[in-house]
Structure formats: C-alpha cells, structure tokens
Amino acid sequence: MRPIIGITTYVESATWGVWRDLPTTLIPHDYVAAVSQAGGRPVLLPEHEDTDVLGMLDGLVLAGGPDLDPRFYGAEPEPLTVTRPDRDRAEMLLARRALDMEVPVLGICRGMQLLTVAAGGTLHQHLPDVLGHEKHRPAPGVYGEHDASFEPGSRIAGLMGDDLAIRCFHHQGVADAGKLTVTGRAEDGLAEAVEDPDRRFVLGVQWHPEVVRDERLFGALVAAARQHRSS
C-alpha cells in the first residue's frame, strides 16, 4: 500500500461549469500529481482545527498560498500582507502537531514559511522593501528563476546535487529560521531551504518543486513516510 500523504488546501472562490464564484476547497493539481508520481497516495486536507487526521497520515505536504498572519510571529500586518485567518490557524496547529508526532513534512513556499514560524522563526513581510528588487515574484503568474546554493552535507544538497536552478513565486521570506537550519539560499542571500537535521524528515523549500514534478524531493518525502509507517 502506498504511504498516505496529506496535502493542505485553499478555500477560494472558484468557477466551473454552470457554477460561479462558489467558496471551494481546492489545490493545484501539480501537488497531487507530484505526490502520486513519487509513489505516495495523495489525500487533500480541508481547513480544520482538529489535528487527529495526522494519526492516519504517513507524511504531510504544507502547500503554498497567501501570506501567513504576522501575529503568529509577534508582528502586525503590513499594508501588502494578505492572509487567510482560518487557514492560518488550522495549518499552524497541524504543523506543530506534525512536528511533535515526527510525521515527515515537506513545506513548499508558504509551507516553508509556516514551518519556520512553527519553529519559532520570523518572516520579512515584503521582500522588495528588504532586498530592493522583485526577482522572487517578477510579475503575476510568472516564476522568478534563481540559482541557489546549498549547504554541503545537508539533506537538500544531497537531493539536488549539481542542479541549482529553482523557480519561485513569493513576496515574503524567512528572516529568522528559529530552531530550523537554513540550508539553501538564493544569490541575494535569502533563505530558500530550511530543515531540521535532528528529525527524520522536516524540509521546507521556498520554490515550487511540484510544478516540475520533482521526484527527488517528493520521493524523499514518500521514502520517509514509508519509514514512519513501519516504525
């Protein structure tokens, strides 16, 4: 049986067929396809503040999405910060409980930021104010392309090998990684990967590996999920 991988979801207004602007629980199909292609059984997780579902999961993907509420790291929202409070509360509970239970976790974009804040870290709320450029979110729907550098001996360095190209889309970023270790950076010094070397599998990446169905990262999550199931 394939390991069961939960994927967090959005609630957004969506239109399809004869239906218009309905509040809808959804996630880009790339996440589902990437987990399935890597050998996992994807299960979508709607917003819910009950974390008991983790007892049925072998691994967890914290997906991308809107900004995380700055109050989780002791700051007030800035003008360009856009949050989803219900999702923030539910996913913060889920992330913290997953860490406590040693459930393997892969955080993607917002998911990496969520992992960081769950581990006591903080975020920059608008990167152009800090970095002086828009290269991490160059235009609506356009990914920023970077060459990252990875810490030798880290999990992400072992997974990525000589392939340093990443594609990202975000206007916030990690300021302080808290208890996590920054193991990857963009050329401007911004954290692009974090991990917890003391846990079985806790990895966050600021880019979007699901878009290219990157089996290195999703395969590593599935492998850790198999170990979690058998332990």
Score class of each variant (00 low, 15 high):
residue 87 R to N: 01
residue 49 E to C: 08
residue 127 L to C: 14
residue 71 R to E: 09
residue 88 D to P: 05
residue 113 Q to T: 01
residue 36 S to M: 11
residue 79 P to K: 07
residue 109 C to S: 03
residue 67 D to H: 05
residue 80 L to G: 07
residue 33 A to E: 13
residue 117 V to Q: 01
residue 30 D to N: 14
residue 69 D to S: 13
residue 103 V to H: 00
residue 73 Y to E: 07
residue 100 D to C: 05
residue 108 I to K: 02
residue 64 G to D: 09
residue 119 A to L: 10
residue 88 D to E: 02
residue 54 L to H: 05
residue 80 L to P: 08
residue 86 D to P: 04
residue 92 M to C: 03
residue 31 Y to D: 09
residue 128 P to M: 13
residue 34 A to I: 09
residue 137 R to S: 14
residue 94 L to R: 02
residue 136 H to P: 06
residue 104 P to E: 00
residue 132 G to Q: 08
residue 70 P to V: 15
residue 48 H to A: 07
residue 30 D to P: 04
residue 110 R to I: 04
residue 45 L to K: 01
residue 111 G to P: 04
residue 69 D to H: 13
residue 137 R to M: 11
residue 82 V to K: 02
residue 38 A to N: 05
residue 105 V to D: 00
residue 66 P to R: 10
residue 130 V to A: 08
residue 127 L to F: 15
residue 76 E to Q: 15
residue 83 T to I: 15
residue 58 D to E: 12
residue 129 D to E: 11
residue 52 D to V: 10
residue 114 L to S: 02
residue 42 P to G: 08
residue 113 Q to A: 03
residue 145 E to G: 05
residue 78 E to V: 10
residue 134 E to W: 13
residue 76 E to I: 09
residue 35 V to D: 01
residue 95 A to L: 03
residue 127 L to T: 08
residue 49 E to P: 05
residue 131 L to K: 07
residue 119 A to Y: 08
residue 93 L to H: 03
residue 37 Q to V: 09
residue 125 Q to I: 02
residue 121 G to C: 03
residue 135 K to F: 06
residue 142 V to D: 02
residue 143 Y to G: 14
residue 141 G to E: 12
residue 78 E to H: 08
residue 74 G to A: 10
residue 138 P to K: 11
residue 135 K to T: 13
residue 31 Y to R: 11
residue 73 Y to I: 10
residue 134 E to Q: 14
residue 120 G to P: 03
residue 136 H to M: 12
residue 31 Y to W: 12
residue 45 L to C: 04
residue 122 T to R: 00
residue 33 A to I: 13
residue 142 V to T: 10
residue 52 D to N: 06
residue 33 A to L: 15
residue 114 L to Y: 03
residue 136 H to Y: 09
residue 51 T to Q: 02
residue 46 P to F: 09
residue 83 T to Q: 08
residue 89 R to F: 06
residue 90 A to F: 13
residue 64 G to P: 05
residue 62 L to K: 12
residue 45 L to D: 08
residue 110 R to W: 04
residue 115 L to S: 01
residue 38 A to P: 00
residue 127 L to S: 13
residue 92 M to A: 00
residue 47 E to P: 11
residue 73 Y to Q: 09
residue 90 A to E: 02
residue 83 T to K: 10
residue 96 R to K: 12
residue 29 H to S: 15
residue 104 P to D: 00
residue 65 G to N: 12
residue 86 D to Q: 12
residue 46 P to S: 06
residue 47 E to R: 14
residue 85 P to Q: 06
residue 53 V to S: 03
residue 144 G to F: 08
residue 116 T to G: 02
residue 78 E to S: 13
residue 134 E to C: 11
residue 112 M to G: 04
residue 64 G to M: 14
residue 56 M to F: 14
residue 121 G to D: 06
residue 78 E to N: 03
residue 121 G to F: 12
residue 43 V to A: 10
residue 104 P to M: 04
residue 43 V to L: 15
residue 64 G to E: 10
residue 124 H to P: 02
residue 31 Y to A: 14
residue 56 M to P: 00
residue 133 H to M: 12
residue 39 G to M: 12
residue 58 D to H: 06
residue 109 C to G: 00
residue 67 D to Y: 06
residue 73 Y to M: 12
residue 115 L to C: 00
